[in-house]
């Protein structure tokens, strides 16, 4: 009997711990909608198996120019949390009705550092139709310092919705931020190999990448699967005189005809995918590591 009383406090402690653990595992999975894949990846890394993350835009469509229909809005309304990139990425946002309490603008903490794009050209590609990149540059996550801040905002928004999972979320955030910091350091080291090296970008989506890592980047408006017109080639040749680049950065592998024609002008192609959509294989981290290796080849 005396032995039982000696063990009683321990039994109570174990009981309370088990009850707390039960409460954590019993909480329903957090339903998250992320407006693009990097945010979905951050949420999945932070939330682990405690979250269900969906990206509403279809796989073949650029999430930056995707427009939700009433059904997609209805699905978003059912989510617990909607992760937004901010920086004018979600152009559909003013035209839909969503709960403000569910929205989390992940770039709000660095909105004073957004890059403004003036006099952008209107062009068309993919199912999104005609569009322009005028306004605010939105591929904020290609600056891995900013990506870390967006990951932090994602974690804070998730904690607000599931405070009982705070410890788990913060632990996972720490490992994610370590990975992003690793990418940041590596890219800085790669960019330092040839500072000021002239580069071309096939699309104006690398503004934050160029700013953070000091890349001497000039953008055109080309698509990897659309052969540019005669005027665009002439324009490129003129630009090459002022900006003698040896590499053009692409969002995706360009068609061989385009790559060959570029090669004839002395421009090699490399892929640095913004990874706005879920990749067919691998994940955000793997795609970014591949991007870094591709960029390293230009810097050697």
């Amino acid at each position: 009997m005396r032995r039982f009383f000696l063990f009683l406090p321990w039994l109570m402690l174990v009981g309370v711990s088990l009850a707390q653990a039960g409460a954590v595992t019993d909480s329903p999975k957090l339903k998250i909608i992320a407006s693009h894949y990097p945010l979905a990846y951050f949420a999945e890394r932070i939330g682990g198996n405690r979250v269900v993350v969906n990206q509403p835009s279809p796989p073949g469509e650029d999430p930056a120019f995707w427009k939700p229909n009433a059904k997609a809005v209805g699905d978003m309304q059912k989510a617990d949390l909607i992760l937004l990139n901010g920086a004018d990425y979600e152009k559909w946002l003013p035209r839909v009705s969503l709960s403000k309490f569910k929205l989390a603008d992940t770039s709000a903490t660095f909105r004073n550092e957004f890059i403004r794009i003036e006099n952008a050209v209107t062009h068309s590609h993919g199912p999104g139709g005609m569009h322009s990149h005028e306004g605010t540059a939105f591929t904020t996550w290609l600056d891995f310092g900013q990506a870390g801040k967006q990951a932090d905002a994602t974690a804070q928004a998730m904690i607000r919705k599931r405070p009982e999972l705070k410890t788990l979320f913060l632990e996972n955030l720490k490992t994610l931020q370590a990975d992003l910091a690793g990418l940041d350091a590596e890219l800085k080291a790669i960019a330092a190999l040839k500072p000021g090296l002239a580069l071309f970008a096939s699309h104006p989506v690398y503004q934050y990448l160029a700013r953070r890592y000091g890349l001497n980047l000039k953008s055109v408006h080309w698509e990897p699967n659309e052969m540019p017109g005669k005027e665009e080639w002439e324009e490129l040749q003129k630009s090459l005189a002022a900006h003698p680049a040896r590499w053009m950065i692409w969002e995706d592998r360009p068609d061989p005809e385009i790559a060959d024609k570029l090669q004839s002008l002395g421009l090699k192609s490399l892929v640095f995918s913004p990874c706005a959509n879920r990749p067919e294989s691998g994940d955000f981290l793997e795609v970014m590591k591949e991007n870094l290796e591709n960029l390293r080849s230009a810097m050697h």
């Binding site: 809005v73 209805g74 309304q77 003013p94 035209r95 839909v96 009705s97 969503l98 709960s99 403000k100």
Partner: peptide, 22 residues
């Protein structure tokens, strides 16, 4: 209002659907 108002006042739909588009 934003959709949160309906949750706050516990207003539920009798017919149709909730606001979705502009």
């Amino acid at each position: 209002v934003s959709l949160d108002y309906f949750d706050f006042r516990r207003l539920s739909l009798w017919s149709g659907q909730m606001l979705a588009m502009l």
